[in-house]
Amino acid sequence: MAFTLPKESYSGKVLSLTFGKDDKAVTIGGEDTLPFLSFEGSIPNRPAIAYEIQDSPIDDWPETLKAVYKDVSDDPVKWARYCQDELKAQAIALRLVSTHPDRENRSADDAAKTVSEVLSAVETPLIILGSNHVEKDSEVLVKVSEAASGHNCVIGKAQEGNYKTIVAAALAHNHKLIAMSELDINLAKQLNILITQMGFDKSRLITDPMCSALGYGLEYTYSVMERIRLAALMQNDATMQPPILGDVGMYVWKTKETMAEESDVPEWGAIEERGIAWESITATSMIMAGANLLIMRHPKAVEVVKKIIDELI
């Protein structure tokens, strides 16, 4: 029997998207094949990784991770500079956790001020995230979009319950936008349609189908991402063609596996390596399923995922 290379032909293509400015700008997406199958298509851009920083001193991260940022995490500007200068971050994701009504409940104006300060301190492309409180985010993200006008940021996350105001703000100030739905390909598709119906071009969207950590529903995210990619490429479904986000760090670093001391669970092994493995393997799984952009926390996890990408591309 003679071997013939079983190539798939794809009718669709993932949209490419650029955020940030000048020579620091980052471009993601653009591939016309399933993840890393370069024998049957082209993959013009590597998956990008953004370091997550927060606008308020961290309280709920495990000690092993907190320690990495202990000298800078009291101030988002210092923290952003550290990511840019020491960690050589390709992108930074600023999460405005302090605006959550259950945290410090800081105002949208305060958040806008923080964003302006970070933007004037670093040139690294910025992703600006709310606190994931549906009502509050619709206020906060409108103000910060305005404050970041002209910086070509990624703003997020727009969800079914608040997308209208956030889309309008991203549109007015020329930002890219993350559309998030909860682990369901149909919801992801519907939200992308609703957003584009407001006149927001799909080439400026990023789909976040909701991440989950290794051992905590990872298989759901994995399969939803694979199905979104297949719809984009095989069925040429234009609403499923924006690049995909994996917001990895926030889901990983609250799991027991990243927090439990080795003395409590000796069979789980060293806590530091365990946490780094948890974040990096979650991230690696996401790029295998089709993610184009990752948000991560631990520099060692980021480093190993970069090495993986070096091997894959």
């Binding site: 290794l214 994995y222 806590i271």
Partner: peptide
């Protein structure tokens, strides 16, 4: 190593669910 086993066992379990 134990941490490595835990992570890989978990991934295998997730993927083969």
């Amino acid at each position: 190593e134990k941490w490595k086993n835990l992570a890989l066992f978990t991934l295998r379990q997730n993927i083969y669910t």
